[in-house]
Design a protein around this nucleic acid. Structure first.
Lengths: 149, 149
DNA sequence: ACGATTCGTAACTATTAAAGTTACATGAAG
DNA sequence: CTTCATGTAACTTTAATAGTTACGAATCGT
């Protein structure tokens, strides 16, 4: 898995799950899609479980399923659950006694907040169900997307 | 110098320069402000020179000065010259044959573009002169901000 | 009950992007 | 022609993240 792609990767997995509701998916399976390791997957989606987006079942036949209907899970919900910051722009002054540094940081921080708000707004307009529908839904679409093609 | 703070650091230095026009500042001096190394500074601002924001003079009494009036240099100009991406969100599908991944990436990429546009717009509304004015301008303010307090 | 399976998590290693450093060539001022 | 400053290449260090190993806990099928 590439760096800085936790949101992309998580959404990828979640939409696949939305396509086949009630079918638990294992971390092994997901790791295959994301070309990574099962443990990395479990670590990545831990926050999604805590946020009530995914529910996990252990043991034989276990795995992950969506904890609520795909239509009620927006991309913003997922992004928030991952607690990832997407804006890599430092707005904390290192030396708060320098007026210049403070002023620069204050401006940038204002912009940062505004931009994060816009992103959250946009992410809130799309749900997992929307994307699943775009790709075709259900078992057929799931098989279509099996990555084994 | 901390990571992901090239824009903040560059603006910090540039505003100090705006406060004392026609006084070349050495990388040694700037490195002191940013708590880093002169070579790191030279590397960081290389793009600013190529973009016509800074001009450098070598040799005795040399250093950097703003290449144009501070009022004509917006924060967006600086950000563009640094060629830094501020949105750490991967929107390139790793396996373009997966419909789900493509759909997710397409949505995120649209949002990314919109967000970057907003940020650029906002950065364009503020110039180095604006910030210098906020901090008090001229030699007096420069001394006020000497970081040696 | 028992073994197979799967998540949960801690502890460790590997990778990599960026900062920091050293070294030296280039050029300008006095 | 010495001194000081940038320009840049090459290398080392650092830190964030991915990847791995290991094992405990929980659940199912037999």
């Amino acid at each position: 898995m590439k760096r800085n792609s936790r949101l992309t990767a998580s959404l990828h997995a979640l939409v696949h799950m939305a396509q086949v509701p009630d079918h638990p998916m294992t971390s092994e399976e997901i790791a295959g899609w994301l070309h990574t390791n099962p443990v990395v997957v479990r670590r990545m989606v831990a926050g999604l479980r805590e946020a009530g987006i995914l529910s996990a079942v252990r043991g034989h036949g276990g795995g992950w399923t969506l904890a609520r209907p795909a239509a009620s899970i927006s991309l913003a919900d997922v992004a928030a659950a991952l607690e990832e910051s997407f804006l890599s722009i430092n707005t904390k002054p290192e030396n708060p006694r320098c007026l210049v540094e403070r002023s620069v940081s204050r401006h940038l921080d204002g912009f940062r907040l505004e931009v994060e708000r816009l992103l959250a707004e946009r992410l809130a307009t799309v749900t997992l169900a929307d994307i699943a529908a775009e790709c075709g839904q259900g078992i057929a679409a799931y098989k279509e997307n099996r990555h084994a093609l």
